[in-house]
Design a binder for these strands. Structure first.
Lengths: 191, 191
DNA sequence: AAAAATATGGAGACGACCTCCGTTTGTCAA
DNA sequence: TTGACAAACGGAGGTCGTCTCCATATTTTT
Protein backbone atom coordinates (compact mmCIF):
# COMPACT_ATOMS: atom_id res chain seq x y z
CA UNK A 1 0.00 0.00 0.00
CA UNK A 2 2.83 2.39 0.80
CA UNK A 3 4.83 1.47 -2.32
CA UNK A 4 3.14 2.64 -5.49
CA UNK A 5 5.40 0.79 -7.88
CA UNK A 6 3.20 -0.70 -10.61
CA UNK A 7 2.50 -4.42 -10.33
CA UNK A 8 4.21 -6.74 -12.76
CA UNK A 9 1.93 -7.77 -15.63
CA UNK A 10 1.23 -11.31 -14.40
CA UNK A 11 0.73 -10.12 -10.86
CA UNK A 12 -1.89 -7.67 -11.97
CA UNK A 13 -3.61 -10.32 -14.06
CA UNK A 14 -3.83 -12.68 -11.10
CA UNK A 15 -5.03 -9.99 -8.78
CA UNK A 16 -7.79 -9.06 -11.19
CA UNK A 17 -8.79 -12.67 -11.62
CA UNK A 18 -9.07 -13.06 -7.86
CA UNK A 19 -11.15 -9.93 -7.50
CA UNK A 20 -13.43 -10.90 -10.36
CA UNK A 21 -14.06 -14.37 -9.00
CA UNK A 22 -14.53 -13.00 -5.49
CA UNK A 23 -17.09 -10.49 -6.66
CA UNK A 24 -18.93 -13.26 -8.49
CA UNK A 25 -19.02 -15.48 -5.42
CA UNK A 26 -19.94 -12.68 -3.04
CA UNK A 27 -22.87 -11.83 -5.26
CA UNK A 28 -24.14 -15.39 -5.21
CA UNK A 29 -23.67 -15.64 -1.47
CA UNK A 30 -21.36 -18.65 -1.59
CA UNK A 31 -18.26 -17.32 0.01
CA UNK A 32 -18.14 -19.76 2.88
CA UNK A 33 -15.78 -22.11 1.02
CA UNK A 34 -12.23 -23.18 1.77
CA UNK A 35 -9.90 -20.33 1.07
CA UNK A 36 -7.57 -22.70 -0.77
CA UNK A 37 -10.39 -23.87 -2.99
CA UNK A 38 -11.21 -20.30 -3.79
CA UNK A 39 -7.68 -19.88 -5.12
CA UNK A 40 -8.12 -22.93 -7.33
CA UNK A 41 -11.45 -21.61 -8.53
CA UNK A 42 -9.85 -18.34 -9.54
CA UNK A 43 -7.11 -20.26 -11.32
CA UNK A 44 -4.16 -19.29 -9.14
CA UNK A 45 -2.04 -21.05 -6.52
CA UNK A 46 -2.62 -20.79 -2.81
CA UNK A 47 0.53 -18.77 -2.32
CA UNK A 48 -0.55 -16.24 -4.90
CA UNK A 49 -3.88 -15.78 -3.24
CA UNK A 50 -2.27 -15.18 0.14
CA UNK A 51 0.32 -12.81 -1.29
CA UNK A 52 -2.36 -10.58 -2.79
CA UNK A 53 -4.91 -10.90 0.01
CA UNK A 54 -3.47 -12.06 3.33
CA UNK A 55 -6.90 -12.66 4.83
CA UNK A 56 -10.46 -13.22 3.84
CA UNK A 57 -11.25 -9.79 5.20
CA UNK A 58 -8.60 -8.15 3.01
CA UNK A 59 -10.17 -9.67 -0.06
CA UNK A 60 -13.66 -8.70 1.02
CA UNK A 61 -12.51 -5.19 1.67
CA UNK A 62 -11.04 -4.88 -1.81
CA UNK A 63 -14.32 -5.97 -3.33
CA UNK A 64 -16.23 -3.80 -0.91
CA UNK A 65 -14.28 -0.66 -1.64
CA UNK A 66 -15.80 -0.12 -5.07
CA UNK A 67 -19.31 -0.69 -3.83
CA UNK A 68 -18.74 1.70 -1.01
CA UNK A 69 -17.25 4.35 -3.25
CA UNK A 70 -20.30 4.15 -5.49
CA UNK A 71 -22.58 4.56 -2.51
CA UNK A 72 -20.65 7.57 -1.27
CA UNK A 73 -20.60 9.14 -4.70
CA UNK A 74 -24.33 8.75 -4.85
CA UNK A 75 -24.66 10.48 -1.48
CA UNK A 76 -22.58 13.45 -2.63
CA UNK A 77 -24.59 13.69 -5.82
CA UNK A 78 -27.84 13.78 -3.86
CA UNK A 79 -26.38 16.29 -1.45
CA UNK A 80 -25.60 18.61 -4.35
CA UNK A 81 -29.02 18.46 -5.98
CA UNK A 82 -31.58 18.17 -3.18
CA UNK A 83 -32.43 19.74 0.15
CA UNK A 84 -30.53 17.89 2.85
CA UNK A 85 -33.47 16.07 4.37
CA UNK A 86 -34.67 14.81 1.02
CA UNK A 87 -31.14 13.87 0.05
CA UNK A 88 -30.72 11.93 3.27
CA UNK A 89 -34.03 10.15 2.83
CA UNK A 90 -33.19 9.23 -0.73
CA UNK A 91 -29.75 8.10 0.32
CA UNK A 92 -30.91 5.88 3.17
CA UNK A 93 -33.65 4.28 1.13
CA UNK A 94 -31.19 3.77 -1.70
CA UNK A 95 -28.71 2.21 0.67
CA UNK A 96 -31.30 -0.28 1.85
CA UNK A 97 -32.34 -1.08 -1.71
CA UNK A 98 -28.76 -1.64 -2.72
CA UNK A 99 -28.26 -3.92 0.24
CA UNK A 100 -31.27 -6.05 -0.57
CA UNK A 101 -30.32 -6.20 -4.22
CA UNK A 102 -26.96 -7.70 -3.25
CA UNK A 103 -27.85 -9.90 -0.34
CA UNK A 104 -24.83 -12.14 -0.57
CA UNK A 105 -22.51 -9.18 -0.58
CA UNK A 106 -24.39 -7.47 2.20
CA UNK A 107 -24.36 -10.59 4.34
CA UNK A 108 -20.65 -10.96 3.94
CA UNK A 109 -20.08 -7.34 4.76
CA UNK A 110 -22.21 -7.59 7.85
CA UNK A 111 -20.10 -10.47 9.08
CA UNK A 112 -16.95 -8.52 8.42
CA UNK A 113 -18.30 -5.44 10.13
CA UNK A 114 -19.19 -7.43 13.19
CA UNK A 115 -16.03 -9.46 13.44
CA UNK A 116 -13.44 -6.79 12.89
CA UNK A 117 -14.50 -3.25 12.58
CA UNK A 118 -10.97 -2.23 11.69
CA UNK A 119 -11.53 -3.81 8.31
CA UNK A 120 -13.77 -0.94 7.44
CA UNK A 121 -11.39 1.68 8.75
CA UNK A 122 -10.91 3.46 5.44
CA UNK A 123 -14.14 2.76 3.64
CA UNK A 124 -16.20 3.08 6.77
CA UNK A 125 -14.69 6.43 7.49
CA UNK A 126 -15.67 7.70 4.07
CA UNK A 127 -19.24 6.60 4.61
CA UNK A 128 -19.20 8.28 7.98
CA UNK A 129 -18.02 11.47 6.33
CA UNK A 130 -20.79 11.68 3.74
CA UNK A 131 -23.44 10.96 6.35
CA UNK A 132 -21.95 13.60 8.58
CA UNK A 133 -22.00 16.06 5.69
CA UNK A 134 -25.63 15.32 4.95
CA UNK A 135 -26.57 15.81 8.59
CA UNK A 136 -24.57 19.01 8.90
CA UNK A 137 -26.24 20.45 5.83
CA UNK A 138 -29.61 19.49 7.26
CA UNK A 139 -28.85 21.19 10.53
CA UNK A 140 -27.87 24.37 8.73
CA UNK A 141 -31.11 24.25 6.77
CA UNK A 142 -33.00 23.77 9.99
CA UNK A 143 -34.47 20.52 8.77
CA UNK A 144 -32.50 18.25 11.09
CA UNK A 145 -31.96 18.35 14.84
CA UNK A 146 -28.47 19.23 15.99
CA UNK A 147 -28.16 16.96 19.00
CA UNK A 148 -27.74 13.62 17.26
CA UNK A 149 -24.50 12.68 15.54
CA UNK A 150 -23.83 10.67 12.42
CA UNK A 151 -22.60 7.82 14.58
CA UNK A 152 -26.13 7.11 15.68
CA UNK A 153 -27.29 6.87 12.08
CA UNK A 154 -24.33 4.66 11.21
CA UNK A 155 -25.26 2.39 14.06
CA UNK A 156 -28.68 1.86 12.57
CA UNK A 157 -27.17 1.13 9.17
CA UNK A 158 -24.92 -1.43 10.80
CA UNK A 159 -27.93 -3.05 12.41
CA UNK A 160 -29.63 -3.28 9.05
CA UNK A 161 -26.53 -4.86 7.50
CA UNK A 162 -26.34 -7.37 10.32
CA UNK A 163 -29.78 -8.79 9.77
CA UNK A 164 -30.62 -8.02 6.16
CA UNK A 165 -30.09 -11.60 5.06
CA UNK A 166 -33.03 -12.74 7.14
CA UNK A 167 -36.29 -13.52 5.43
CA UNK A 168 -38.84 -10.75 5.70
CA UNK A 169 -36.44 -8.22 7.12
CA UNK A 170 -36.85 -5.80 4.27
CA UNK A 171 -39.97 -4.18 5.73
CA UNK A 172 -38.23 -3.79 9.08
CA UNK A 173 -35.23 -2.20 7.40
CA UNK A 174 -37.48 0.35 5.75
CA UNK A 175 -39.19 0.86 9.09
CA UNK A 176 -35.85 1.51 10.76
CA UNK A 177 -35.01 4.09 8.10
CA UNK A 178 -38.37 5.73 8.66
CA UNK A 179 -37.69 5.93 12.39
CA UNK A 180 -34.33 7.54 11.76
CA UNK A 181 -35.68 10.08 9.32
CA UNK A 182 -38.60 11.10 11.50
CA UNK A 183 -36.46 10.98 14.60
CA UNK A 184 -34.02 13.37 12.98
CA UNK A 185 -36.59 16.13 12.46
CA UNK A 186 -36.22 18.99 14.92
CA UNK A 187 -38.37 18.57 18.03
CA UNK A 188 -41.32 20.88 17.85
CA UNK A 189 -41.62 21.91 21.47
CA UNK A 190 -38.78 22.97 23.79
CA UNK A 191 -36.69 20.29 25.44
CA UNK B 1 -34.11 -30.40 26.19
CA UNK B 2 -36.98 -32.77 25.47
CA UNK B 3 -36.01 -35.19 28.26
CA UNK B 4 -36.44 -33.61 31.65
CA UNK B 5 -34.75 -36.32 33.63
CA UNK B 6 -32.55 -34.65 36.26
CA UNK B 7 -28.84 -34.60 35.54
CA UNK B 8 -26.60 -36.89 37.51
CA UNK B 9 -24.78 -35.12 40.34
CA UNK B 10 -21.36 -34.99 38.68
CA UNK B 11 -22.87 -33.93 35.39
CA UNK B 12 -24.64 -31.06 37.03
CA UNK B 13 -21.47 -30.05 38.85
CA UNK B 14 -19.48 -29.98 35.63
CA UNK B 15 -22.16 -28.09 33.79
CA UNK B 16 -22.25 -25.47 36.51
CA UNK B 17 -18.47 -25.19 36.52
CA UNK B 18 -18.49 -24.61 32.76
CA UNK B 19 -21.19 -21.98 33.00
CA UNK B 20 -19.46 -20.22 35.87
CA UNK B 21 -16.11 -20.10 34.10
CA UNK B 22 -17.77 -19.03 30.87
CA UNK B 23 -19.59 -16.20 32.58
CA UNK B 24 -16.33 -15.09 34.15
CA UNK B 25 -14.50 -15.09 30.82
CA UNK B 26 -17.34 -13.43 28.94
CA UNK B 27 -17.37 -10.66 31.48
CA UNK B 28 -13.66 -10.04 31.07
CA UNK B 29 -13.93 -10.18 27.29
CA UNK B 30 -11.42 -13.00 26.83
CA UNK B 31 -13.49 -15.65 25.19
CA UNK B 32 -11.45 -15.91 22.03
CA UNK B 33 -9.39 -18.83 23.34
CA UNK B 34 -9.12 -22.42 22.16
CA UNK B 35 -12.27 -24.27 23.02
CA UNK B 36 -10.17 -27.15 24.34
CA UNK B 37 -8.26 -24.82 26.61
CA UNK B 38 -11.48 -23.45 27.96
CA UNK B 39 -12.43 -26.97 29.05
CA UNK B 40 -9.12 -27.32 30.88
CA UNK B 41 -9.62 -23.94 32.50
CA UNK B 42 -13.00 -25.00 33.79
CA UNK B 43 -11.46 -28.22 35.08
CA UNK B 44 -13.22 -30.69 32.81
CA UNK B 45 -12.23 -32.82 29.83
CA UNK B 46 -12.80 -31.83 26.23
CA UNK B 47 -15.45 -34.49 25.79
CA UNK B 48 -17.41 -33.23 28.77
CA UNK B 49 -17.39 -29.72 27.43
CA UNK B 50 -18.69 -30.86 24.07
CA UNK B 51 -21.32 -33.10 25.61
CA UNK B 52 -22.79 -30.21 27.56
CA UNK B 53 -22.31 -27.50 24.96
CA UNK B 54 -21.83 -28.79 21.41
CA UNK B 55 -20.75 -25.39 20.13
CA UNK B 56 -19.38 -22.12 21.32
CA UNK B 57 -22.73 -20.59 20.50
CA UNK B 58 -24.60 -23.09 22.64
CA UNK B 59 -22.46 -22.16 25.61
CA UNK B 60 -22.87 -18.46 24.98
CA UNK B 61 -26.60 -18.88 24.67
CA UNK B 62 -26.80 -20.63 28.04
CA UNK B 63 -24.95 -17.75 29.65
CA UNK B 64 -26.98 -15.26 27.68
CA UNK B 65 -30.33 -16.69 28.63
CA UNK B 66 -30.27 -15.44 32.20
CA UNK B 67 -29.23 -11.96 31.16
CA UNK B 68 -31.94 -11.86 28.57
CA UNK B 69 -34.58 -13.12 30.95
CA UNK B 70 -33.68 -10.36 33.38
CA UNK B 71 -33.95 -7.77 30.63
CA UNK B 72 -37.35 -9.06 29.54
CA UNK B 73 -38.61 -9.19 33.11
CA UNK B 74 -37.57 -5.60 33.52
CA UNK B 75 -39.51 -4.67 30.37
CA UNK B 76 -42.66 -6.34 31.63
CA UNK B 77 -42.29 -4.64 34.97
CA UNK B 78 -42.00 -1.24 33.30
CA UNK B 79 -44.91 -2.02 31.05
CA UNK B 80 -47.06 -2.70 34.09
CA UNK B 81 -46.19 0.49 35.94
CA UNK B 82 -45.73 3.22 33.36
CA UNK B 83 -47.41 4.63 30.27
CA UNK B 84 -46.13 2.71 27.26
CA UNK B 85 -43.98 5.44 25.81
CA UNK B 86 -42.24 6.10 29.10
CA UNK B 87 -41.84 2.39 29.70
CA UNK B 88 -40.28 1.97 26.29
CA UNK B 89 -37.93 4.89 26.80
CA UNK B 90 -36.88 3.58 30.18
CA UNK B 91 -36.44 0.10 28.76
CA UNK B 92 -34.31 1.15 25.80
CA UNK B 93 -32.07 3.38 27.89
CA UNK B 94 -31.78 0.62 30.46
CA UNK B 95 -30.88 -1.86 27.75
CA UNK B 96 -28.07 0.38 26.54
CA UNK B 97 -26.80 0.93 30.07
CA UNK B 98 -26.80 -2.78 30.73
CA UNK B 99 -24.89 -3.37 27.52
CA UNK B 100 -22.21 -0.86 28.36
CA UNK B 101 -21.92 -2.18 31.89
CA UNK B 102 -21.13 -5.63 30.47
CA UNK B 103 -19.07 -4.83 27.43
CA UNK B 104 -17.37 -8.19 27.16
CA UNK B 105 -20.65 -9.99 27.29
CA UNK B 106 -22.28 -7.59 24.89
CA UNK B 107 -19.44 -7.92 22.40
CA UNK B 108 -19.68 -11.67 22.45
CA UNK B 109 -23.41 -11.55 21.98
CA UNK B 110 -23.09 -9.19 19.06
CA UNK B 111 -20.76 -11.63 17.34
CA UNK B 112 -23.17 -14.45 17.97
CA UNK B 113 -26.12 -12.43 16.71
CA UNK B 114 -24.31 -11.61 13.53
CA UNK B 115 -22.90 -15.03 12.80
CA UNK B 116 -25.94 -17.17 13.41
CA UNK B 117 -29.18 -15.56 14.25
CA UNK B 118 -30.71 -18.96 14.91
CA UNK B 119 -28.69 -19.06 18.11
CA UNK B 120 -31.00 -16.47 19.53
CA UNK B 121 -34.12 -18.22 18.33
CA UNK B 122 -35.64 -18.70 21.77
CA UNK B 123 -34.22 -15.81 23.73
CA UNK B 124 -34.42 -13.43 20.81
CA UNK B 125 -38.03 -14.29 20.30
CA UNK B 126 -38.81 -13.42 23.90
CA UNK B 127 -37.13 -10.05 23.52
CA UNK B 128 -39.07 -9.50 20.34
CA UNK B 129 -42.27 -10.28 22.19
CA UNK B 130 -41.77 -7.77 25.01
CA UNK B 131 -40.82 -5.05 22.54
CA UNK B 132 -43.88 -5.87 20.48
CA UNK B 133 -46.03 -5.68 23.59
CA UNK B 134 -44.62 -2.31 24.53
CA UNK B 135 -45.25 -0.96 21.03
CA UNK B 136 -48.74 -2.37 20.88
CA UNK B 137 -49.62 -0.79 24.21
CA UNK B 138 -48.21 2.49 22.96
CA UNK B 139 -50.30 2.35 19.81
CA UNK B 140 -53.45 1.75 21.84
CA UNK B 141 -52.61 4.70 24.02
CA UNK B 142 -52.08 6.79 20.92
CA UNK B 143 -48.51 7.57 21.95
CA UNK B 144 -46.82 5.49 19.28
CA UNK B 145 -47.33 5.34 15.54
CA UNK B 146 -48.88 2.17 14.18
CA UNK B 147 -46.97 1.77 10.95
CA UNK B 148 -43.60 0.65 12.32
CA UNK B 149 -43.09 -2.85 13.66
CA UNK B 150 -41.00 -4.14 16.52
CA UNK B 151 -38.57 -5.61 14.00
CA UNK B 152 -37.35 -2.14 13.13
CA UNK B 153 -36.63 -1.38 16.75
CA UNK B 154 -34.91 -4.75 17.18
CA UNK B 155 -32.75 -3.93 14.19
CA UNK B 156 -31.50 -0.80 15.89
CA UNK B 157 -30.78 -2.73 19.07
CA UNK B 158 -28.79 -5.20 17.03
CA UNK B 159 -26.81 -2.36 15.51
CA UNK B 160 -26.00 -1.06 18.96
CA UNK B 161 -24.87 -4.51 20.09
CA UNK B 162 -22.68 -4.83 17.04
CA UNK B 163 -20.64 -1.74 17.73
CA UNK B 164 -20.96 -1.14 21.45
CA UNK B 165 -17.44 -2.35 22.14
CA UNK B 166 -15.99 0.55 20.19
CA UNK B 167 -14.53 3.44 22.11
CA UNK B 168 -16.81 6.42 22.31
CA UNK B 169 -19.83 4.63 20.94
CA UNK B 170 -21.89 5.15 24.05
CA UNK B 171 -23.08 8.60 23.03
CA UNK B 172 -24.04 7.31 19.61
CA UNK B 173 -25.97 4.45 21.17
CA UNK B 174 -27.95 6.91 23.24
CA UNK B 175 -28.43 8.99 20.12
CA UNK B 176 -29.78 6.01 18.25
CA UNK B 177 -32.24 5.33 21.07
CA UNK B 178 -33.31 8.96 20.96
CA UNK B 179 -33.92 8.69 17.22
CA UNK B 180 -36.03 5.60 17.71
CA UNK B 181 -38.10 7.10 20.50
CA UNK B 182 -38.78 10.34 18.67
CA UNK B 183 -39.27 8.52 15.40
CA UNK B 184 -41.92 6.36 17.04
CA UNK B 185 -44.15 9.29 18.03
CA UNK B 186 -47.23 9.62 15.84
CA UNK B 187 -46.69 11.93 12.88
CA UNK B 188 -48.44 15.22 13.46
CA UNK B 189 -49.73 15.94 10.01
CA UNK B 190 -51.47 13.49 7.64
CA UNK B 191 -49.30 11.15 5.56
C1' DA C 1 20.41 -12.00 -25.01
C1' DA C 2 21.40 -12.64 -20.42
C1' DA C 3 21.08 -11.04 -15.83
C1' DA C 4 18.28 -9.26 -12.18
C1' DA C 5 14.05 -8.69 -10.12
C1' DT C 6 9.56 -10.19 -9.30
C1' DA C 7 5.93 -13.51 -8.94
C1' DT C 8 4.15 -18.27 -9.06
C1' DG C 9 2.04 -22.54 -7.00
C1' DG C 10 1.29 -26.38 -4.36
C1' DA C 11 3.31 -29.67 -0.92
C1' DG C 12 3.32 -30.02 3.67
C1' DA C 13 3.78 -28.10 8.53
C1' DC C 14 0.75 -26.35 11.81
C1' DG C 15 -3.05 -25.77 14.89
C1' DA C 16 -7.84 -25.87 16.20
C1' DC C 17 -11.98 -28.61 16.45
C1' DC C 18 -14.43 -32.49 17.77
C1' DT C 19 -15.17 -37.69 18.13
C1' DC C 20 -14.61 -41.98 20.17
C1' DC C 21 -14.22 -45.33 23.57
C1' DG C 22 -11.90 -47.44 27.76
C1' DT C 23 -12.36 -45.89 32.43
C1' DT C 24 -14.59 -43.75 36.33
C1' DT C 25 -18.46 -42.16 39.05
C1' DG C 26 -23.09 -42.12 40.62
C1' DT C 27 -27.60 -44.46 41.38
C1' DC C 28 -30.64 -47.80 42.97
C1' DA C 29 -32.56 -52.31 44.04
C1' DA C 30 -31.88 -56.25 46.69
C1' DT D 1 -23.72 -52.85 52.32
C1' DT D 2 -23.00 -54.41 48.02
C1' DG D 3 -23.40 -55.53 43.28
C1' DA D 4 -24.84 -54.29 38.83
C1' DC D 5 -26.27 -51.08 35.65
C1' DA D 6 -26.49 -46.59 33.66
C1' DA D 7 -24.59 -42.24 33.05
C1' DA D 8 -20.80 -39.37 32.52
C1' DC D 9 -15.84 -38.53 32.22
C1' DG D 10 -11.59 -37.18 29.76
C1' DG D 11 -8.02 -36.86 26.68
C1' DA D 12 -5.53 -39.16 22.76
C1' DG D 13 -5.77 -38.74 18.18
C1' DG D 14 -8.25 -38.25 13.54
C1' DT D 15 -9.80 -34.63 10.47
C1' DC D 16 -9.70 -30.51 8.07
C1' DG D 17 -8.84 -25.67 6.96
C1' DT D 18 -5.02 -22.20 7.14
C1' DC D 19 -0.84 -20.42 5.80
C1' DT D 20 4.37 -20.72 4.82
C1' DC D 21 8.21 -21.73 2.15
C1' DC D 22 11.13 -22.17 -1.70
C1' DA D 23 12.43 -24.28 -6.18
C1' DT D 24 10.69 -22.80 -10.48
C1' DA D 25 8.75 -19.67 -13.93
C1' DT D 26 7.83 -15.12 -15.87
C1' DT D 27 8.70 -10.33 -16.64
C1' DT D 28 11.67 -6.40 -16.82
C1' DT D 29 15.98 -4.19 -17.31
C1' DT D 30 20.53 -3.57 -19.12
Amino acid sequence: MTTDRPLRADARRNRDALLAKARELFASGCFDMRFDDFAKLAGVGTGTLYRHFPTRAALAEAVYREELTAICDRARELRATLPAMEALAEFLHGFVSHLYANLGLAGTLATLMASRTDTLADGGRELDRVVTDLLTAGVEEGAIRADVSAGAVMMVLQGICAVCDQRGSRADADGAVTLVLDGLRPRVGPA
